[in-house]
Amino acid sequence: MLSNIIEAPLRLLGEYDIKCVIVGGVAAAIHGSTMLTNDLDVCYSREAPNLQKLATALQSVHARLRNVPEHLRFILDAETLKRGLNFTFVTDIGDLDLLGEVRGVGNYEDVLADSLTVELFGYHFSVIDIGKLIAAKRAAGRPKDLIALPELEAIQEAQALKNQTQS
């Protein structure tokens, strides 16, 4: 049984210095949400050096596409990442979803803008702004996204009140 299936992929991204922003359920958890998730979603920079580092990092944990038959040939390299956009991987250390774009928000640069920097396990990570996370979940529109909204909106309002008090 795998353990630390969120922490381990985060450490991998930190170790390989991948330019990315944490989005999805893990971002919600970092903002304080109690909703559960069991994979890590990140929106990644599509600059060539980042794709190369990302391919090397993914190779090190034997990443393969999730729910794709084993016999289908998949070459995990920077060129493949460049040709695609969004990938869902299963790896030796946990599931990892790479998003070139986040619906309702945009690409890496759009997601990175206004993001929050947090330290996790000795590495600095960018986490999507809570307002953008709410927009992304609303745009995704799946029941599991929509049920997360009331709590996220409460956290957002609490953060705004806290900022008002401090300023």
Partner: peptide, 21 residues
């Protein structure tokens, strides 16, 4: 939610991992 907000971001991830496990 309030209990979660009292934790650091890293503690929140550890709690999530622990729950999943």
């Amino acid at each position: 939610t309030l209990e979660n907000l009292r934790l650091t971001p890293e503690e929140r991830i550890r709690k999530l991992d622990s729950f999943i496990e």
